[in-house]
Design a protein around this nucleic acid. Structure first.
Lengths: 206, 206
DNA sequence: GTCTATAACCAGATAGAC
DNA sequence: GTCTATCTGGTTATAGAC
């Protein structure tokens, strides 16, 4: 870790503030509805200053996604540190823990929601090395757990690994969470627990 | 059914063509990315003519959603016509049939995708009586099947009805479908069958 | 009702002084 | 680097002739 000048630290802090605002606004309104003016107002800087830090609106969103992936990798790293991790019998519990965590992040209003099919944003993300590297790393770690869980019969062996992986990713931004939260009838923990159950055990139940 | 003049029929046909285009474009690109110019060009009419039929872009989307709900109600009606429907033991099969059907519609590129949290669109939909009436009717019919299925233990009795209903609605626009389709590794029937299974039996499998 | 042309507006992005 | 002020492009919506 290189030492940084005081000036650089100030800049770093400002960028962090920008990414935090972007992350929250993306979670609240989504990419299209979020405006750069809004971000600038929220951070408390002029719009032109934002463009000194980030080249485009898409770059802002990418920075927020990278931060989320870093948080995810940190969370996965904690699970890996647990010595039980070596036992395939616990792999499915690790996956459930990841699913629960992503749902909690979403309920806390900290999960950016990116329209799956926005062309300019997707194109920019697919060319962003930092983003792709992290996405790949998450995929590999989850993929290993999925294979372990399948090998001991804790997950359906007839499902391709990528089907399970996509499903887990999708549950991190499942609109059902928001609907149940908006209904106001359930505690956050109830929602997470019900949806984790339906994800792994299905609507039929165990 | 009131008889219609020839002129009215012509208009009806044109409106149908407009709604079909809107439906397809919404499925392809979503509400925000779809432009009114595009719709006009696709239908082959002037943009101003569109505004004679529909008051706003939101009204266009609402018309497409209403058509989808009508198709859904027709599909549900066919299931209800089956005499076995009276037997609660078959309720879960009816629900699976509805889930499969909505996934097939999505795979066929005929399911409009409306960003869940667009304010202007949501506000307009929530004031559209035709839309709300149909949504209510679908909900009531599915709700009865869900309760029947729970009563015979075919669905998890511990889950509130609305949790199951929201989950079924959400699976109709699950991004996993699009991802698997885009991967090109699976036939449409495979995708539908795998996702129906994970929805009802979970990732763990039966 | 349909068309061409245009108004009105708003978002993303930039120029130039400090 | 940050600000104020402005440009540019694209979108919704409408005027007015036919």
């Amino acid at each position: 870790m290189a030492k940084k000048s005081f000036r650089e630290q100030i800049l770093q802090v400002r960028e962090d503030a920008i990414v935090s605002s972007v992350n929250r606004l993306l979670a609240e309104k989504g990419f299209e509805a979020m405006t750069v003016d809004e971000v600038a107002a929220d951070v408390g800087v002029a719009k032109a200053s934002l463009y000194k830090h980030f080249a485009s609106k898409e770059a802002l969103a990418a920075a927020a996604m990278i931060r989320v992936l870093d948080r995810t990798l940190a969370m996965i790293g904690e699970l890996e540190a647990d010595p039980r991790n070596a036992d395939p019998a616990h792999a499915v519990e690790q996956l459930k823990a990841v699913a629960r965590w992503t749902m909690q992040v979403q309920l806390a209003g900290e999960m950016p929601s990116l329209p799956a099919q926005n062309s300019t944003l997707r194109a920019e993300l697919m060319e962003n090395r930092s983003y792709l590297d992290r996405l790949m790393e998450v995929s590999e770690k989850l993929g290993r757990w999925i294979e372990s869980a399948q090998s001991v019969g804790a997950l359906d062996k007839s499902l391709p690994v990528e089907v399970i992986m996509y499903t887990l990713f999708a549950r991190a931004c499942d609109p059902v969470l928001g609907l149940l939260k908006a209904s106001g009838q359930y505690q956050p923990e109830q929602i997470v627990s019900m949806l984790t159950k339906t994800c792994f055990e299905g609507l039929r139940g165990s």
